[in-house]
Design a protein around this nucleic acid. Structure first.
Lengths: 138, 138
DNA sequence: ATTTATTTGCAACTGACTTGCAGATTATAT
DNA sequence: ATATAATCTGCAAGTCAGTTGCAAATAAAT
């Protein structure tokens, strides 16, 4: 049984071809994916766009993937897995590639500052922008 | 002469009614505004939507306003003024109100981490999410 | 195997944002 | 102040990501 199928069963979602294929894509790529990335895929030929959106929603509800705030136009999602815990991304401003970072860089004084203005703190989003090694050397 | 008019002249932009009105709105509100906020305004009745977009672009080019990455659907912009330097925002997840914070909470170890993965660092976006005082007390 | 619930493809829709065009307004040159 | 050139505006139509209703197809439950 494929890994994706096991996950779907565990989360009590119906196992269908499109869900298996889409989830396998997330597993294979192992980095944030948006509609744009999906459209570059051969899977896009086989699977209707609306199914992509509907399944992404289902996966998100089921906590299989999470939304990654990208500060650009498109919604992007990545696998929620136990070994990739809370972390952020660095986006290359030239080739738009995304790399996951392994720690969270917020310092405590900043969190305290939020509390000072009377807010109770929920989550946060943090993205770095820069040039990846390849683009840097051009 | 209105403050907005002075700014427009300094930046060598044509002074028109819509530009003055729109810029006054940014000055009056003094917090990030999106199309959604604009549509709630009486100005929206008088001014065409496309003019809003075109003027926002012009203001951005002229460095009068800057884009604020909100990680949600809509593009949001705020005044660039010398006394509000580099800073971030906290967004209320209930009423969607936005508050500017006065410092940047990135710590240096995080920046070093980006360099470790071979990236040269450009900008970054950082948003906090939580409940504002009003929504908290409900 | 049959019923019931869910998912799919398709087509139509929404809403943010853009663009071409012709008329109006602003800047400039005289 | 006036004429001309440059820019801006409203309008209507278009683009594109994302959503939704419906009927046919597939999966789950009995």
């Amino acid at each position: 049984m494929k890994k994706s199928e096991a996950i779907l069963r565990e989360k009590r979602l119906s196992v269908t071809k499109s869900r298996v294929d889409l989830l396998e894509l997330f597993i294979k790529k192992n980095k944030p994916l948006s509609i744009i990335d999906f459209k570059k895929t051969k899977l896009f030929q086989e699977m209707n766009e609306s199914s992509f959106y509907r399944n992404v929603s289902k996966f998100e509800e089921a906590d299989i993937i999470r939304s990654v705030p990208t500060a650009n136009e498109y919604h992007s999602y990545e696998l929620v897995s136990d070994d990739i815990d809370h972390h952020h991304h660095i986006v290359c401003t030239s080739c738009k590639s995304v790399k996951c970072l392994t720690e969270c860089g917020l310092d405590k004084s900043f969190i305290n500052m939020a509390k000072k203005v009377g807010y109770s703190l929920g989550g946060h989003s943090l993205e770095l922008y820069g040039l990846c090694p390849k683009c840097k050397s051009k």
